[in-house]
C-alpha cells in the first residue's frame, strides 16, 4: 500500500509484525486448546467459563481497592482481604439478625465495611503514606490478624451463609446450558460497580484531583485540594467495593475467618499480573485469573481425551494456576501486563 494512512489490512499487518513470534505462537496455542475444549465438552466448557467469569468479577472487586490504594498511596494493604471478609459477615448479620432483605443488605453491608475502612485508614494507614512499603505490608498484616481474630470472636470459627432470596435461586436458560440466576446477578452488579468506580477515577474532577495529589502532593495542596480527605474518601471507596464483593460472594459460598487471607493473596496476584498502578490492568488480570482457574482443568482434561495421555488430567490443578501465572509474569515482565515501569521495583 502506498497510502500515507494504511487501511485496516495494512494496520493489522503492521500490528501483527510488531508482535514477537513467541506471543503469536502462545495466542495460537491458547486458541487451539480452548477451541478443542469447547468442541469436546461444550456444556462443561460454558459452565466453567461462566463460573470463571463470576469468580473473576469477585476478584476484580477485591483487587480494585487494593490497586487503588497501592497505585495512589503506595501502601501495600494486606488488610484489604479482611474488608472483603467483613462484607460477607456484615451481610450475614444484617440479613439474619436484623431481617433486612438481600438487596437492602447489599447496600448496608458495604457501607458498614466502608466505615471500618475509614477507621483503619485514619488510625493506621495514614501514618504509612510515603514510608517504606514493607512497613505498610507489615502493619496491615497485623491489622488483618486483628480483624480475623475479632471476627472469630463475634461470629465463631465455622463458616456462615445467609439464605439466598427466592427470586434469585432458580436457573436462567441460555441456549446451550442453564446458568444459576444468582451468578448472572453477581456478574451484573459487579460489572456495574467496577464501571462506576473506573469512571469516577478516570473521568471526574474528584478522580483527577486524587491522581494529581499522587503525582505532586505539595503542589496539589497549594491549589487548594484537601488531600487527606480525598485519600480517606478513596480508601472508603476501595473498602466499599471490597465489601460489596464479599456481600455478593457470601450468599453463594459463605464466609469464614480464612476468607481474608485467601482473597488478599489472590488480589495481590491479580494486581501484580495486571501491573501496579493500572486499574485497567487489574480488571483484565482479575478476569484472566478467574478464567484460568476454571478453564485450565477443562482444557487439560479435553486435551487428555484427544491425546490419550491420561497423565494430563491433573485433579485440583485450578488453585495452583494463579500462582504459576504470577510467577511467570513477574519473571518475564516484572511490571505486569499494563503496569508502569519502575514502580516499587
Amino acid at each position: 500500500m502506498s497510502d500515507a494512512t494504511p487501511g485496516v489490512v495494512g494496520r493489522t499487518q503492521r500490528r501483527l509484525s510488531a508482535l514477537s513470534p513467541a506471543t503469536g505462537v502462545g495466542v495460537a496455542l491458547a486458541v487451539v486448546l480452548l477451541g478443542n475444549a469447547a468442541v469436546q465438552e461444550t456444556g462443561l466448557f460454558i459452565d466453567q467459563a461462566i463460573g470463571g467469569l463470576v469468580y473473576g468479577m469477585i476478584l476484580v472487586m477485591v483487587s480494585l481497592g487494593l490497586a487503588l490504594v497501592l497505585g495512589l498511596m503506595g501502601v501495600v494493604n494486606f488488610a484489604h482481604g479482611a474488608l472483603f471478609m467483613l462484607g460477607g459477615y456484615f451481610t450475614f448479620t444484617v440479613m439474619e439478625s436484623y431481617g433486612l432483605p438481600f438487596l437492602g443488605a447489599l447496600v448496608v453491608a458495604p457501607l458498614l465495611v466502608g466505615v471500618v475502612g475509614i477507621a483503619m485508614e485514619v488510625v493506621v494507614l495514614r501514618r504509612l503514606y510515603g514510608s517504606n512499603p514493607i512497613i505498610g505490608l507489615l502493619a496491615t498484616f497485623g491489622l488483618t490478624l486483628m480483624v480475623e481474630e475479632a471476627a472469630r470472636f463475634v461470629w465463631g470459627a465455622s463458616g456462615l451463609q445467609p439464605s439466598k432470596p427466592g427470586y434469585l435461586t432458580g436457573g436462567t436458560d441460555l441456549v446451550v446450558t442453564q446458568v444459576g440466576t444468582y451468578r448472572l446477578f453477581t456478574v451484573f452488579v459487579s460489572a456495574l460497580s467496577v464501571v462506576a468506580v473506573y469512571y469516577l477515577i478516570t473521568n471526574t474532577d474528584f478522580g483527577l484531583s486524587v491522581r494529581a495529589g499522587v503525582q505532586d502532593g505539595e503542589m496539589t495542596e497549594f491549589v487548594g485540594v484537601n488531600l487527606p480527605v480525598r485519600f480517606t474518601a478513596m480508601f472508603f471507596l476501595g473498602s466499599v467495593i471490597a465489601g460489596l464483593g464479599g456481600a455478593l460472594r457470601v450468599v453463594e459460598f459463605g464466609v469464614d475467618p480464612g476468607t481474608a487471607e485467601e482473597f488478599v493473596i489472590l488480589a495481590f496476584v491479580v494486581v501484580v499480573i495486571g501491573g501496579v498502578g493500572s486499574l485497567f490492568g487489574s480488571v483484565v488480570a482479575g478476569l484472566l485469573v478467574g478464567w484460568a482457574q476454571f478453564l485450565v482443568p477443562v482444557v487439560l482434561s479435553s486435551l487428555a481425551v484427544v491425546t490419550g495421555i491420561s497423565a494430563l488430567e491433573i485433579q485440583g490443578v485450578g488453585r495452583l494456576i494463579p500462582f504459576l501465572v504470577m510467577i511467570v509474569v513477574l519473571l518475564v515482565r516484572p511490571r505486569g501486563l499494563f503496569g508502569e515501569e519502575g514502580l516499587l521495583e
Binding site: 501495600v76 505490608l137 493473596i265 495481590f268 490443578v317 510467577i327 513477574l330 516484572p334 521495583e345
Partner: peptide, 28 residues
Amino acid sequence: LLIVGKGEIYFALLTLAVSQAIYFIALR
C-alpha cells in the same frame, strides 16, 4: 537466583506465591 533482584515488595509477593504453589502441590 530468579527472584532476589526484583525489589522488596515483589520479593515478598513472589516468595508468597511460590510457597502457596508448593502448598497446593502438597495438598494435592
